[in-house]
Amino acid sequence: MDFGSINPILLLASLMVAATPILLAAIGELVVERAGVLNLGVEGMMIVGSVLGFVAAIGTGNAWVGFGVAAVAGAGLALMFGILTQYLLTNQVASGLALTLFGLGLAALLGQGYLGTKAPSFPDLHIPVLGDIPVIGPIVFQHDPMVYIGLAIVAGVWWFLNKTRGGLVLRAVGENHEAAHALGYHVIRTRLLAIMFGGACAGLGGAYLSIVRVPTYAEGLTAGAGWIALAIVVFASWKPGRLLIGAYLFGGVTVLQLNLQAAGVAIPVEYLSMSPYIATILVLVIMSAGSAPGSLGKTFHASR
């Protein structure tokens, strides 16, 4: 047993990277759910984003193009979900699950022929001055750009939801779509935009896995990350600030248990792996009523 070998600075630094894909997917889903829509297809959108992003990055040799394509692909798939649930009034839970099934298959089909190829490199950003600050520098300021883009999106979503009229409309639609409709807000248009934003973010999260984290292609790359993203949204009780804590907690428990294992501490891995989910349930109980958007998961059809 050797706790001394765990370096807290490096631990925190790797945490930021580990949390990025789930953070990206989760912030998108958070917006979707704040608009009153429950999209369980995050995993499907993530994996399609990861494959198409990867293919585009290989084709152009430019990782940025890959991220762009991944976002568009995620949004496109999400639009399909949006049309189904918003115009054809299908059940959101069932449609989301179907989307995951569809996405997993589609990704595997599209990825054929790319097995074992390697993504173009995507170097870390070495922010001058800030990156050289002792302790904080390596933790916070020496990552690849997507880490910061992820954080920027979280900040942007917070600002949008709390400080803009658009955010107000979105929240109103999510809380009570009948009332929002009565006030003359465009419930369906708002929701479609939110769903597409969610898809784009999930696509980015997936592409982060295939272009930065793994960076070679293999089938089933996301390995359940989309489901963790769903959990984090709940853990955060639909607030962007807490989402950050949630993503770091989920990433953190993984990183911590790996660190403890490597340091030779005998821990029951399965039970530690359960802990974030149990923590999420506890958070749900403590936050309890009123925190979930009022119209979450309900179908809206304007009756006249």
Partner: peptide, 19 residues
């Protein structure tokens, strides 16, 4: 506790390197 989970495997490798 997995045969294939890229994110977790990357994390494990980083952890070992850091240690």
């Amino acid at each position: 506790y997995t045969w294939f989970d890229p994110a977790k495997e990357a994390e494990a490798a980083n952890t070992l390197i850091e240690q």
